[in-house]
Simulated assay, not measured.
Amino acid sequence: MSRTRRHRNIRATQLFIIFAGVTVLVWVLRGLGLLTFLPGGILWILILLSVITGIWSRFQR
């Protein structure tokens, strides 16, 4: 595996972890009532970004 390809795979995995972590954090804080001002569409966008980056990370391998 070339160095550039490995670097892209690591970057894709890092993006997935970041998006998934932010999504879980927003979901939990919204459930606790701390982020009730955020519309539900924001949460759906974060979930969609997590799924897309997860699939992208998987296909980079």
Rank of each mutant, 00 (worst) to 15 (best):
A20Y: 02
A20M: 10
L29I: 00
T4Y: 14
R61D: 11
L38K: 05
I18A: 15
S57P: 01
R3A: 15
T23G: 01
G54V: 08
L25F: 12
Q60G: 03
T4N: 12
R61Y: 10
S57I: 00
I55Q: 03
G31R: 03
I55R: 10
G40M: 07
F37H: 06
A20P: 01
F37R: 04
R3I: 13
W44S: 10
L35Q: 02
F37Q: 12
T4H: 14
S50W: 05
A20F: 11
F19Q: 03
W27G: 09
G41R: 07
G21E: 02
L46H: 06
V24D: 00
V26I: 12
T13I: 10
W44T: 04
W44I: 10
R5T: 06
V24Q: 00
Q60I: 03
V24E: 01
G40N: 12
T4F: 15
G31P: 06
R61W: 10
R5W: 11
I18F: 14
P39H: 11
I47S: 05
I10T: 12
V28W: 09
T36I: 08
L49Q: 04
L29K: 09
N9T: 12
A20D: 02
V26R: 00
L43D: 04
W44Y: 10
F59Y: 14
L25K: 01
W56Q: 06
I47Y: 08
